[in-house]
Design a protein around this nucleic acid. Structure first.
Lengths: 269, 269
DNA sequence: ACAATAGTGTCTGTGAGACAGTATGTC
DNA sequence: GACATACTGTCTCACAGACACTATTGT
């Protein structure tokens, strides 16, 4: 029984107690929302109707003992230590609820940040998640909190802030992950109400993608309802639901919703 | 300075020393390769030319102290503890090299497994990676090792084995990750030599996807060369490279290679 | 000449893309 | 009726999908 693999493994377990273990295991959450742009037309050029925004918290400068706080006075992603009776994913959900009061929202793991030195307190691992939360939820919560400590920033603003730890990198990756998922999955639904107008969907997509199919309104209106994961919202009489007209949108429009069909787009098509 | 967030955070750091920390931080690697099927025609039905196979190691039954080994005598993914001067990703690469002697190969993180109870030794975290290694590399290495301790299994075989820890789940996720990436990225290139024949590419793809575009040979031969990430292999005279004919393939065929263009397929196209 | 794989010609239908036009409501 | 937004008709062009056909070599 003196085979290479075996010895190596045996050694590993023998040393196991002495093995260096991490000093902390945390979850961080990049909470995204869409902010409507007041002025869709700016300098004669059209801007998209929404901008992606991120929720950050400001770390305290002084801790409860009166000592200077680590990475104090910097903006940071919400997050915290993972308890042993939960997974990183569950911790992210718990912390999201603690921070924003929101439950049952899309939370997605997108990366691990474990480079020694990223946190001066020691070898602290972070599991990074992103969450998508409708703006209304966040407004409510942030109003009840001290406004100076929790804020929404547009992405442009975020990257001009001094951020704690390696959150600058994490946020860059988070944005890429969201953008990717908007193209490849139906996450976009979390930016929308359960039942939405086609034009709403198009406007939300335009905040992310620059695709002729989406840009072209007639094309999109024709194509989108045929997609396997989108379906008309039907009322109890199996009639298509429509919006109530108002001063802005005179003609009522059909409502649509997402079906739970998972699609995997292919580069080989 | 007695704001909710601040207190909570301060508390966190105060408790930091007492916080439960993980008992171990590991990387596991699902090493995939393609095995050619000897008999492409089976029971009158055509099978794909390749099958996806996975490398597993057999854990020793007894450790170096003569004690029964944890999860001993079971097949498991190669992997091990992460050192503090490396990231999970680097550890995976190091361990892959130790196991197979292969360097500079695609290694990709696809998941975190951190549920308490997954390892009886304590709260042991695992970062799961997959790697794609040409069969030839593995054959060499496995021949030099004890054949009973390192083996390739087809996926059907894998799921009939008794596997250590939660590796059954990890492997299922790994297969899904590879299948997804074959559709959405150009990972498939790691199953192929740097320069390959169109038909080789098609056969490899057929091991994963069931798409009319790929199935249809003329269609694929016409379409693939136009894809932005595939280009003809050119020799020093800028002439398309061709294979040397032999008894099997009489007519020489053009060689192609992958370009480093990253594409993001979209569900909205 | 024949076998074997590489690769192209050609036809048909579907669907993207663009823009003009029609529909349905409020004021 | 004017207007604003929702939606459809229609034309063109390109390409997917299918299958037959030609091309290039070794034996």
């Amino acid at each position: 029984m003196k085979i290479y693999r075996t010895e190596e493994e045996a050694l590993q377990y023998y040393d196991s107690g002495k093995y260096i273990t991490p000093d902390g295991y945390t979850s961080d959450i990049a909470v995204f929302t869409l902010l409507p742009n007041e002025e869709p037309f700016h300098n004669g050029k059209s801007r998209s109707a929404y901008s992606l925004a991120l929720m950050l918290i400001k770390r305290a400068g002084i801790d409860s003992d009166g000592q200077p706080n680590i990475e104090g006075n910097k903006w940071a992603l919400p997050g915290g230590f993972i308890q042993r009776d939960e997974t990183a994913y569950e911790a992210a959900q718990r912390e999201l609820k603690e921070e924003t009061g929101v439950e049952g929202i899309e939370v997605k793991h997108f990366g691990v940040y474990d480079k020694y030195g990223r946190d001066k307190r020691g070898w602290i691992l972070s599991n990074a998640h992103y969450a998508i939360v409708p703006e209304t939820y966040l407004e409510k919560r942030m109003a009840s909190d001290d406004a100076a400590e929790v804020r929404l920033f547009t992405l442009d603003e975020v990257f001009q802030l001094e951020l704690a730890f390696d959150h600058h990198v994490i946020i860059k990756d988070a944005v890429r992950a969201v953008e990717r998922d908007v193209l490849q999955t139906t996450v976009v639904k979390y930016f929308l109400p359960k039942e939405f107008k086609m034009e709403e969907l198009r406007q939300v997509l335009l905040a992310f993608v620059d695709d002729p199919v989406v840009k072209n309104k007639p094309g999109f209106f024709r194509k989108a309802p045929t997609l396997p994961f989108i379906t008309e919202a039907l009322d109890h009489n199996n009639e298509p639901k429509k919006t109530e007209p108002n001063a802005d949108t005179r003609r009522p429009s059909k409502l649509y919703c997402f079906k739970d069909v998972d699609v995997t787009p292919s580069i080989w098509r």
